[in-house]
Design a protein around this nucleic acid. Structure first.
Lengths: 270, 270
DNA sequence: CACTCATTTGCACGTTTATGCATGTTTGTA
DNA sequence: TACAAACATGCATAAACGTGCAAATGAGTG
């Protein structure tokens, strides 16, 4: 699989140590992770030097070292909306993996929800992406960044959901054709597929799936194997499943056996 | 590998120290880095001289010295993010005064902009208010609170404005009837009335005024008495004007003489 | 012209930094 | 539990660095 290669050009053959560290930080932002061996090859230095760089960057609080490379630290959030961000690190790890499903120039459909806001924040900049969403927090995650076409779906906003749902929102949605959609998952199981808690909400998610070429379900582990009240879509309509690192292989294989491409996120760092 | 040699001409063999430093700065901008050894070869001086130059430039804050050469120091932050945290205390004082214009059970129309987000945050809870807005940050300011009916206006989001504008947004807006609207003001003067910077933005504000029973203009002092490029509405269509505490009485009376109710905010406390 | 003063430059010296390799240890996975 | 990959650490080397000093240059002055 090719790297999207966002804004960052190719690192030059000869790079000064500090310059190299800048490149690493940039790559952390655009790719969500770095692998020591890859960096060593690209900069044409030994892995020892790369490790030294990562150690220094981690000391400055610019990344978190992990076995094999490094990950970006969870970005600081404003204290006002801190309540809404639980499990930030885990969701960012999920989001980074989900962002790798995206291709240049695609039209994305992103649902409301904190996990989906994290996905929006993890999307590569300047790739000609169009993001259609009913969620204000998804828009805000994109506003500070560059190179996105943003289309907002209007309608009555349900405060429990944090986005527009209802008849008007569905009607607006049906004028859209998207390449890939991320319907927020309330629950997911092998037999029933994707579920939602609320009637209006589920109808909106259902519409999302219908107007999208592909559907990617991104779930935290606590939602796997559970059911809810309103059915959204069967597994046959789901092409991608992004799960956390701690999901066991048996579960992953079970979904893979139903023709769902399972993507496993990296370990989360706090 | 050949040097791209972008805009900068070839450094001549004989160059005065200051001249040399200018070239170095130019090269920093175009190449993003300079290597001491390369510079020494091109200017045909010793690396010691180049190092002296770099030391001086770094002292003037024109570059950052690194082992092997120098790098340009990072500049600029996102203008929108910056705008959002400017003059918070003053805007809160304005917003509190603006919130006193609201009556129970009204339908409010709130534009995008940091001042308007502050107004939303200052609205009284549980008064049966309906808030219609095209701005995600206004919605977020209301989501954590209770007793609001929120209606989101969709459409293409302009990142500079931070809200939906354009034909679709205007069309959605025209299905609404509001009691009071708060169009974000880019400029306000006695003759021309209310102005906006952008064409699409101004058309949307214009539509806001047309579907609202009353219009309230809330402005920070720096926008008073100035004009912009696109006209939104004349003073005859503006019923309320909320200004900061430091606006002089003559100005307030001038607006009052044109049948605009002028409301003066309390002093801001930082 | 002789002299001074300021500036710039290159060189020699000792110091700091970056790097790769060898060592033994830790970590993730089967 | 076993094993390989990734890791930390110490060490040697080479490059880059800072500092002090002397030579060269040029402008101003008696």
């Amino acid at each position: 699989m090719n790297k999207p290669r966002a804004a960052a050009p190719i690192p030059p053959g000869e790079a000064m140590p500090q310059e190299r560290q800048q490149w690493i930080v940039q790559r952390l932002r655009s790719h969500g992770r770095v692998v020591a061996a890859e960096l060593a090859a690209e900069f044409e230095v030994s892995e020892d030097s790369i490790r030294r760089d990562l150690r220094e960057l981690a000391g400055q609080g610019l990344c978190k070292r992990v076995y094999g490379g490094a990950l970006p630290l969870p970005v600081a959030v404003s204290p006002l909306k801190q309540r809404r961000v639980e499990h930030t690190a885990r969701k960012q790890a999920l989001a980074r993996k989900a962002a790798t499903l995206v291709r240049q120039g695609q039209v994305l459909l992103i649902d409301a929800g904190s996990t989906n806001a994290a996905i929006a924040a993890a999307l590569p900049e300047r790739c000609g992406l169009t993001v259609v969403t009913n969620a204000p927090d998804v828009v805000l995650a994109l506003l500070d960044r560059e190179g996105f076409e943003i289309q907002l779906i209007g309608g009555r906003v349900d405060p429990r959901i944090g986005g527009a749902v209802g008849a008007q929102a569905v009607k607006e949605l049906q004028r859209i054709r998207a390449d890939l959609c991320f319907p927020g998952a309330c629950a997911l199981d092998l037999e029933g597929g994707l579920w939602g808690f609320d009637s209006e909400e589920s109808l909106f998610k259902r519409a999302m799936v219908e107007v999208s070429g592909e559907t990617a379900v991104v779930v935290t582990s606590d939602k796997l194997g559970t059911v809810a009240t309103h059915r959204v879509a069967g597994l046959a309509e789901v092409q991608h499943l992004v799960v956390e690192h701690d999901v066991d292989k048996a579960t992953r294989n079970a979904y893979a056996a139903r023709d769902v491409a399972v993507h496993r996120a990296d370990v989360a760092v706090d």
